[in-house]
């Protein structure tokens, strides 16, 4: 087979006289398995040029760069000290309100539940009434139950 054309192209390639199409012909030619011995030294060069076209970045790069581009532009803004602490002041105010309400509720509940909470007070306060009630009950009991008199009858 005559490789004159390829040899000529190769010479012109090194002299930078080839067109893009001719350079592609060289790359295609050197991709074949059978290369004549005199051209073999240059095979690797054109194979490398072809292989290097496939060098690529992965999908993860897309995600990274898209995330960076879609982010809104963040600009530096001057913030006064009072503005900076405003959220904390809000939080503190909220805590104060909750505590006040909680305390108030606690007090009103504790007033209602006082007698129940302290049985001793209940006892001392109700004891005299209970005594009276108890006496009353025992009196009623004695009236309601007539004395059973034993009648002894002579035989």
């Amino acid at each position: 087979m005559d490789y004159k054309y390829i040899e000529q192209l190769l010479d012109r390639y090194f002299l930078c006289q080839t067109s893009l199409e001719e350079e592609e012909i060289l790359r295609s030619f050197f991709r074949q398995e059978e290369i004549p011995a005199q051209l073999l030294p240059y095979r690797d060069l054109f194979r490398y040029e072809k292989a290097a076209q496939k060098q690529e970045l992965g999908e993860d790069f897309d995600a990274k760069v898209l995330a960076m581009v879609n982010q809104p532009v963040v600009k530096a803004r001057r913030v006064r000290l009072s503005e900076r602490f405003r959220p904390f002041m809000k939080a503190a105010a909220l805590v104060a309100i909750v505590l006040t309400i909680g305390n108030a509720a606690q007090q009103s509940f504790s007033k209602k539940t006082d007698p129940i909470v302290r049985p001793s007070v209940v006892y001392t306060e109700t004891e005299p009434h209970a005594d009276v009630a108890s006496d009353g009950i025992s009196k009623v009991d004695s009236i309601a139950q007539p004395e059973v008199q034993e009648v002894v009858t002579p035989d």
Binding site: D44, L45, R47, Y48, A51, A52, K54, Q55, E56, L57
Partner: peptide, 16 residues
């Protein structure tokens, strides 16, 4: 590098 995966071939490495 990613290219190394493509051109594992020692000869390609020489050209690189």
């Amino acid at each position: 590098t990613p290219l190394d995966d493509l051109v594992q071939d020692e000869r390609m490495q020489i050209v690189k």
